[in-house]
Amino acid sequence: MTDRQQGDTADRLAQLRGGLSAVEQRIAAACAAAGRPRSEVTLVVVTKTYPASDTRLLASLGVREVAENRDQDAAPKAADCADLPLVWHFVGQVQTNKARSVVRYAHHVHSVDRPRLVSALSEAVLREGRAELGCLVQVAFDAGVGAGRAGVAPDQVPALADLIADTPGLRLDGVMTVAPLTGALAGRPAAAFAELAEISTAVRAAHPAATMVSAGMSGDLEQAIAAGATHVRVGTAVLGARSPLG
């Protein structure tokens, strides 16, 4: 490594350390405001569009949970970082023909939104002979409303949760949402996250181990934590506005 490369790496490490510290402070403050222990909230750093070198630097800073949203980027990055003690979360939409690739590295898939995907993931897990894959039901509060988010409508969550729980190779971990862009809850992330918390309570009544509540990103993690999120997915606030990969 040249002196310039070493300097660039040191600069990037300092940037990531600063971003991570700022986000940790926000999470701690949000937990305190909500009367929750900091230990109840897991930070998942969304490394999508950023190189494996950033993932390695984050790991050196103590990050253990990372997320990706496109298999074509995630698969090679996970392979490059296979020697690191990381937990990989897949948070994007999974095409059924990509299921086998995704299950090779993902520990949790946050974006399960249809029975066909449940079947594809199960088949892939069994074929790969790996341990159970954790799955979250993605809830869309603007389902069917214009250019709404992916996911299932709230009233469809129980059936999909039951299906995941009953499918070989899969483990129902909980529920996930992204603040809606359209519909009655557009621009109201706190209200959406509060509704997600109610859905989570109902899911846990039938499936007590499904305790994960994945909600909140760089701009709304405080509202998510106030509503009971157990996992917040933060990218830009940690990684900054660096030019991403093409």
Rank of each mutant, 00 (worst) to 15 (best):
S214Q: 12
S214Y: 09
D173K: 04
L20W: 04
L121V: 08
T49Y: 03
S243F: 07
D173E: 15
G62P: 10
G151F: 05
E24A: 10
V232K: 01
Q15V: 08
P180V: 00
C81F: 02
I199A: 10
V238P: 13
P51H: 03
G187R: 10
A210Q: 05
V44W: 04
V139C: 12
S119K: 02
P208K: 06
L160T: 07
V118K: 04
S111D: 11
A78C: 06
P158K: 03
C31G: 06
V157K: 01
A74I: 09
D166R: 06
H108F: 11
P158A: 05
M212K: 04
A59S: 14
T177S: 10
V178Q: 14
S122C: 07
P115E: 15
D113H: 04
G240K: 00
L16T: 10
Q25F: 03
V203A: 13
K48Q: 06
A79M: 01
V109C: 11
Q93R: 11
R56C: 07
V46F: 07
Q156I: 08
A78F: 07
S243D: 15
E65R: 12
A165T: 11
L133Y: 03
A206S: 13
A74W: 05
I164N: 00
A206V: 06
V152F: 04
A197C: 12
A161L: 02
A78T: 07
L136G: 12
A120H: 03
Q223S: 14
A184C: 06
T2A: 06
A22L: 09
P208C: 12
R130F: 03
R100D: 14
L181Y: 06
S214D: 13
A59L: 02
E40P: 00
D54N: 02
K48A: 09
V157C: 14
M1P: 01
A192R: 01
